[in-house]
C-alpha cells in the first residue's frame, strides 16, 4: 500500500517553509528594537501566531489531512483563542 492516498511533501517545500519561519523569527527579534509601545506585545504575538499556523499547516501536514482533522484542529484553536480572549475580558472588566 506504499503511499496509497497519503501525500508526500517535497524536501524543497519543507526548506522553503523553514526559510519563512527563520525570516519571521528575525523580524520578531528586530521588532523588539523598534518599540511599538503598547503594540509591542501584540506585534510579537501576531508574528508568533503566523509562525504557529505555518508549522501546523505545513510541517504537521494538516494541509493534506482529511476534512475531519482540518475542522477539528481549526476548531480547537478557535476554542483556545476564545478561552484566552474571554479570560482577558473578564480580567479587565472586573
Amino acid at each position: 500500500m506504499k503511499n496509497e492516498g497519503s501525500h508526500i511533501s517535497s524536501y524543497t517545500s519543507h526548506a522553503v517553509v523553514l526559510i519563512a519561519l527563520l525570516a519571521l523569527t528575525a523580524i520578531s527579534v528586530a521588532a523588539t528594537e523598534w518599540h511599538f509601545g503598547a503594540f509591542t506585545v501584540g506585534v510579537a504575538l501576531l508574528i508568533a501566531s503566523i509562525k504557529v499556523a505555518t508549522v501546523i499547516i505545513n510541517f504537521m501536514h494538516v494541509k493534506h489531512e482529511s476534512l475531519f482533522i482540518k475542522a477539528m484542529v481549526s476548531g480547537v484553536f478557535v476554542l483556545f483563542a476564545a478561552v484566552i480572549v474571554i479570560t482577558f475580558i473578564d480580567y479587565y472588566l472586573r
Binding site: 508526500i8 523553514l18 519561519l21 527579534v29 523588539t32 510541517f59
Partner: peptide, 27 residues
Amino acid sequence: TFIGTLNTVFLLVSSMTVAMSITAIQK
C-alpha cells in the same frame, strides 16, 4: 536574547528535519 534566539533556530530546523524524515521514509 541571543541564547533564546539560537534555541528558536535549533527547534525550527529540527522541526524541518523531522518533517523531511517522513518524506524520506515515504520514499
